[in-house]
Amino acid sequence: MATDDKDHTFITRFRIPKRLWDAYGTAAQRQGTDRSTDLVNHVRDYVREHGDAQELTELEAAEKELADRRTRKGGRPRKSDQPT
Rank of each mutant, 00 (worst) to 15 (best):
A2D: 11
D4H: 03
D5T: 10
D5F: 00
K6C: 02
D7Y: 00
T9W: 05
F10E: 13
I11H: 07
I11V: 13
F14H: 05
I16V: 15
I16S: 06
I16K: 08
P17M: 08
P17V: 09
K18T: 15
L20S: 07
W21H: 12
W21V: 12
D22F: 03
A23S: 10
A23F: 01
A23K: 06
Y24R: 08
T26D: 11
A27C: 09
Q29I: 08
Q29R: 15
Q29V: 14
R30G: 11
R30F: 01
G32A: 02
T33H: 01
V40T: 13
V40S: 10
H42W: 07
H42Y: 07
R44N: 05
D45Q: 12
D45W: 06
Y46H: 13
Y46N: 08
Y46C: 10
Y46I: 09
V47F: 00
V47N: 00
E49F: 02
A53N: 03
Q54I: 13
Q54R: 15
Q54M: 10
Q54T: 13
L56S: 01
L56N: 04
E58P: 02
E58V: 06
L59E: 02
L59K: 04
E60I: 06
A61Q: 09
E63T: 12
L66W: 03
L66T: 13
L66G: 11
L66R: 13
A67H: 06
D68L: 04
R69H: 08
T71Q: 12
T71G: 06
K73E: 14
G75C: 03
G75A: 02
R76C: 06
R76V: 14
R78I: 04
S80Q: 09
S80R: 13
S80H: 04
P83M: 08
P83H: 07
P83F: 06
